[in-house]
Every structure is written in structure tokens, then in C-alpha cells.
């Protein structure tokens, strides 16, 4: 199957929109600096609202990936500059009861906040669709 020029352009725009949404979600890194983790959801909501037009799933994934990358960036910074991994190792030993499971904490942290990002992206997409729906009703 060959794509028409318009379809190609639409696909490129869709991809670009997705990655723009990821980029906006990555701005969660700035919201993390407020130390109020609940605010992190704002970035993917905005990303989903502005750029995700087609599928709810894309809204989820743009927020998930963007916030996951933001979280990963911060974690890598602390692991590189402080004994952060040793601390999380100890924390995991306290919670789980086994030593050497810092990597579980590492993954868990990324997944937790990435999921918040996913929900944010989903919410942004939903808001956008709600607005579109209301406008079409008018």
C-alpha cells in the first residue's frame, strides 16, 4: 500500500506531535524542582492537550515517556554525584528485606512517576477531546 502525500504529511505531523508532547512532558523536570511531586502531572497534561489529536494511547505514552526521561535524568544525576544508589539499596532492604535491590528502587521510581506522566497525557488528550466535542455540539 502506498501512502498519498497528504497521508505522509499527516503521519509525519502525528509523529512530530507525539514527540512534541513527549518534549513538553519532559519539562516535568522543572516541576520536580518544586519538590512537590503532584505538580509533575501538569507537564504531560499540557503535552497531551496541545499535541495529541488521534489516540488516547498516544497521550498515555507521550506523558509516560516524557516523565520517565525526566525522572531518569534526575536519578542519573544523583547517582553520579552522590551515594544515592547505596541509600536506595538500604531503603529497598528495609522495605523488601533483601540487600542489593537498589535497582528495583531505581526502576520503581521511574515507573511510578512515568505512570503519573501517562495519566497526565491521558487527561490532556481527554480534555482536548472534551473541548472538541463541546465545540462540535455548538
Amino acid at each position: 500500500m502506498t501512502l498519498t502525500r497528504n497521508e505522509k504529511i499527516q503521519r509525519i505531523v502525528a509523529k512530530a506531535s507525539f514527540w512534541l508532547s513527549v518534549l513538553v512532558s519532559y519539562a516535568a523536570i522543572l516541576l520536580f524542582m518544586t519538590r512537590i511531586w503532584q505538580l509533575v502531572i501538569i507537564a504531560p497534561v499540557v503535552g497531551g492537550l496541545l499535541f495529541i489529536k488521534e489516540k488516547a494511547g498516544l497521550g498515555w505514552w507521550s506523558g509516560f515517556i516524557g516523565v520517565a526521561l525526566a525522572t531518569l535524568t534526575i536519578l542519573l544525576y544523583f547517582v553520579a554525584t552522590q551515594p544515592a544508589m547505596q541509600t536506595v539499596d538500604l531503603l529497598m532492604a528495609i522495605i523488601i528485606g533483601s540487600a542489593g535491590l537498589g535497582w528495583v528502587g531505581f526502576l520503581l521510581t521511574i515507573v511510578i512517576y512515568a505512570c503519573i506522566g501517562g495519566f497526565g497525557g491521558l487527561i490532556g488528550f481527554a480534555i482536548q477531546k472534551l473541548v472538541e466535542h463541546r465545540e462540535s455540539d455548538k
Partner: peptide, 14 residues
């Protein structure tokens, strides 16, 4: 709060 990348255990000031 505990796992918050900035403000939780990751950013503890060693």
C-alpha cells in the same frame, strides 16, 4: 514523597 526524585530519598544531601 519517599521516592520523589527531588525531595525524596534520591536527593538526600550526603
Amino acid at each position: 514523597n519517599l521516592m520523589n526524585p527531588i525531595g525524596g530519598v534520591w536527593s538526600i544531601d550526603h
